[in-house]
């Protein structure tokens, strides 16, 4: 046996509560991130990701206390991200009980923060989040891909997918690895929320450009999508949010499905 593929539920948290369509009958307070974290842990999640989608200055204390509460109820690795801009903020999150800190806008604005974090905490703590979107406006020096009919490059977006940067996602991933990122959480903006599968072209391109683990995110609507991304790319982990919100797609059942289809998972 060898290293297994990781299945990672993601909780989007706003004002200390989980948002996005929730439909748990077994949990009274479905919006409580601590209860959900515990549930996912018990179901065999390989890791948990928390993204603070409000990420305002005022919410920092809420998130810190939430992080330590979650860390008390789970015994699997735990990544926290959303609005991390400074070294101090990242440090706060790690010292509150997170194992890794995910950073996007903060790293694009100040790439050196990746190196500073790596030197302080080790690269295993440093997760670079890349939110990428296909840009059909071909320009010189970009890594060009094609889906058969159209050509495009992958552009990095910041501020929760709201602002383009002109950065090529492939080049940025390589640079971030050199600077100190230990893992990449890769979200396709085109696919996010569509529930029609991960962006396989994007995922494959990033995985083949770096030598650090990559987590695929955005577009997972059913277990088959996870199978597709593991069969078609050498990605290390698949992240999903809404798929796990229904008992029919509990973490353990998804992993059983993957195992039946010859994907190495921890069961």
């Amino acid at each position: 046996m060898t290293l297994t593929k990781r299945i990672i539920p993601c909780l989007d948290v706003a004002n200390g509560r989980v948002v996005k369509g929730l439909n748990f009958e077994s949990i009274k307070d479905a919006g409580d991130p601590v209860l959900l974290a515990e549930k996912y842990g018990n179901e065999g999640a390989d890791e948990l990701v928390f993204l603070d989608i409000t990420a305002s200055q005022e919410q920092r204390e809420t998130i810190r206390s939430l992080v330590s509460k979650v860390a008390q109820v789970i015994d699997i690795p735990f990544t926290v991200g959303g609005g991390v801009k400074t070294l101090q903020h990242a440090r706060d999150i790690l010292l509150s009980g997170a194992d890794k800190v995910a950073i996007n806008t903060g790293a694009v604005k100040n790439p050196q923060i990746l190196t500073e974090l790596m030197e302080l905490f080790g690269k295993q703590c440093v997760v670079l989040t890349i939110d990428a979107k296909r840009n059909y406006n071909i320009s010189k020096g970009k890594n060009i891909f094609s889906d058969g009919s159209k050509s495009f490059w992958f552009e990095v977006f910041i501020y929760g997918g709201k602002k383009e940067t002109g950065l090529d996602a492939i080049d940025w991933a390589k640079k971030a690895q050199e600077l100190g990122a230990g893992e990449i959480l890769l979200t396709s903006i085109d696919k996010d929320g569509t529930k029609d599968g991960y962006d396989l072209i994007l995922t494959k391109a990033i995985v083949e450009s770096v030598n650090i683990p990559v987590i695929a995110s955005g577009g997972c609507g059913e277990p088959k999508h996870m199978l597709d991304v593991f069969k078609n790319t050498n990605v290390d982990a698949a992240l999903a949010a809404s798929i796990f919100h229904y008992e029919t797609h509990s973490v353990d059942r998804v992993k059983e499905f993957l195992k039946e289809n010859s994907i190495d998972v921890r069961l």
Partner: peptide, 13 residues
């Protein structure tokens, strides 16, 4: 060895 992904990250037996 750098022919493997580094770090070795995840569940192994």
């Amino acid at each position: 060895p750098n022919k493997f992904k580094i770090p070795h990250m995840g569940w192994n037996n």
